[in-house]
Simulated assay, not measured.
Amino acid sequence: MDLLPLEILHHIFLLACSDGGRTGLFLSLVSRSYHDIARPMRYNSVAIIGYRNIDTFLRCYKNDRAALQTQEQESAPIVRHLLLTTDATDMERVIGTGVTESLQSSLLELLQLVGPTIVTMSYTCHVQLEVLLAEHAFPRLRELTFLRNFARPYCQSAGATPIPTYPPLPRGLPSLRKLHVILITTLDHTVPVILARWAHAAPNVTHLRVSNVRGGMGGMEWLQEMLEKKRDERPYPSIAHIVIQPYTRPVHATNRGGMTQAIHGQFIAQLDAYQQNAPADLNLVRLEPAAWSQMLLREWRDGAEGGDGAWPEGRLYTQ
């Protein structure tokens, strides 16, 4: 190690720190010299699981930035790959009290710090991502996966939680090319409304993946419009590749929600028919359903390590 230039060691450590922080932590514990080399590199890939860890990360990150600036180090800690997701305690907290101002403030502070440098991000927190994106620009972000849910129950009965309104999204995502939306509930807005906002904010996206699609969300109507119209008239004109991942087939033949196995079969048949008749300039692929929580972490790590991530080449480009 003593024979290698510091620049080479930084590059080696940068390549090693691609698993969300675990390797960077272990490298820092080897020795004092390893700790100093890894200090700016270990933030290359950061996985924050659980809201309680956001403020802890912010303290560590700001302390390391201040220390390295004091030492006049040439390499500053830079976050390039970010995973923000929840744990079981977060779900209980949100159901009980809703999203707090302190949580939203912490998320805003975090994204303000790392927004200028991140290249890939996976986000599944209860504060809608559109609210956060309205406050900051992400000039280098190329790949984004986010969970689209509505944390507070909504129904049309008297006294129900009103449908939220979100601030307009600025065009702060000029580098975004791959967008993956995981739909859990869309009770606040339909798929066409959601994607229209992203078509404005990220007009250069070429790859779109929508997971957990089901009937009643407006997704099939949006897809039909994409397939039937000319490119410049489509709701998202820049898109050249669409990956649809339907909802999981119901276990029982019937259930109270109406999502029976028969309806699921009809949904898949319609999607396959769309795929067969897709225009030459629009590649449409259907992926098999998957548990999104397990899928998210696995695909994010794979992408940060240089793999296909959420965009497996063999399935994405082969009809």
Rank of each mutant, 00 (worst) to 15 (best):
V205I: 13
L111F: 02
T190Y: 04
Y236N: 02
A151Q: 05
H126W: 13
F150A: 06
Q224D: 07
L141T: 00
T117S: 13
G159M: 07
F138A: 06
Y123S: 04
S105F: 05
C125M: 11
W198R: 02
V205E: 04
A160L: 09
Y236W: 14
A160P: 03
I184N: 03
Y123C: 03
I194F: 08
R171V: 07
T190C: 08
L132V: 01
T120N: 10
Q245M: 06
V119Y: 09
I242T: 02
E101P: 01
Y236I: 10
P116I: 07
I184D: 11
E101Q: 15
P203L: 09
L187Y: 07
L187G: 02
D188G: 14
R197W: 08
Q224N: 06
S211E: 10
P168W: 11
A202I: 04
A151P: 04
I118N: 01
L133M: 11
Q156T: 03
E135W: 04
R231A: 05
P174S: 07
F146W: 10
H180V: 06
W222D: 04
E233T: 10
S106M: 02
E109W: 01
E221I: 13
R234V: 08
G218H: 08
I182E: 00
V114Y: 00
S157T: 09
A201C: 08
M217T: 10
I184E: 06
L147W: 08
I118Q: 00
L144Y: 00
A160F: 10
C155A: 15
N149W: 06
P164L: 14
H241D: 05
A199F: 07
E233S: 11
